[in-house]
């Protein structure tokens, strides 16, 4: 049974349709890539999955996440679902972390909530779990960084903390919304490798959203390409990215190839 089922999802404001007739499924442990340029509706789709759409946007269609209907669910039901079934890593870790809270306390928040659900949320248990998570995300010098504020550490370190916070929920689905876009290239590669290792080790399904074909190709098993709120092509990553059938996908792949060629100095 699929972990996430999205069926004929349409998102609209009073006068514009932003996402139209979108359908896809993600199986437990599967890595799914959502590709598209800015404004194609990828991020809105991810917000719809977690039930966090802005009030002005009305969803229709069906979203079933881990057996729960998301559209039309009560805030209480969604709250439980968010902690348990899904977690999100955002594009810009500087704004996704509370600027006035030390990093260690930010990781401890979701850890404590999860431990409370299972029973024992003693201070020692929370601290131990936080340390385990910082090891998992390979945060250097945790002693020092856990006491630091977000603006005091580097972008890559911030994103590692954000990933640790997402993992702290032990989600079944991890949504990564352009998690590397705000980082420099070498850090990007580290974060992608880290995410990939983590979801593989923990058996977490991944919804990876990006406009970067190269990164998506590296991460996802199946991909879907979106344009202007509609799906234009979907299929296994290898097939879509090497032998695209749709014109738009073909132009994206060609552009990416030209870019790579230019980087490597080929004519």
């Amino acid at each position: 049974m699929a972990l996430l089922t999205v069926e004929t999802l349409t998102l609209a404001t009073a006068d514009t349709v932003l996402v139209e007739d979108l359908s896809f499924t993600i199986a437990p442990g599967e890595r799914f890539g959502l590709i598209g340029e800015s404004g194609s509706g990828k991020s809105l789709t991810s917000l719809a999955v977690t039930g966090l759409l802005p009030r002005a946007i009305t969803p229709s269609g069906r979203i079933v996440l881990d057996g729960t209907e998301v559209i039309g669910a009560s805030e209480r039901a969604l709250g439980a679902l968010r902690g348990r079934a899904v977690a999100t890593v955002f594009q810009e870790p500087l704004t996704a972390l509370d600027p006035l809270m030390p990093l260690g306390r930010q990781i401890a928040g979701p850890v404590r909530r999860r431990l409370k659900r299972t029973g024992e949320a003693s201070a020692a248990a929370v601290t131990a779990e936080v340390r385990k998570l910082t090891d998992q995300v390979r945060l250097p010098d945790p002693e020092r960084l856990l006491g630091a504020y977000p603006h005091e550490v580097s972008g890559g370190q911030r994103q590692r903390v954000a990933i640790a916070m997402a993992l702290a929920c032990r989600p079944k689905l991890l949504i990564a919304d352009e998690p590397t876009t705000a980082l420099d290239v070498t850090t990007q590669a580290e974060i992608v490798t880290l995410l990939l290792d983590l979801v593989r080790d923990e058996g977490i399904a991944l919804l990876f959203i990006s406009h970067d074909l190269g990164v998506v190709g590296q991460v996802a098993e199946r991909v879907m390409v979106m344009r202007n709120g509609r799906a234009v092509e979907s299929g296994p990553a290898g097939q879509v990215l090497t032998a695209p059938r749709d014109d738009y996908t073909r132009s994206l792949v060609a552009a990416a190839r030209r870019f790579d060629d230019a980087l490597e100095g080929r004519p």
Partner: peptide, 17 residues
């Protein structure tokens, strides 16, 4: 309106917290 509030909500933080 900040991302860290969205992030907190995604991870299941209640309104009180």
């Amino acid at each position: 309106s900040k991302d860290y509030i969205t992030a907190a909500r995604v991870s299941g933080t209640g309104w009180g917290s």
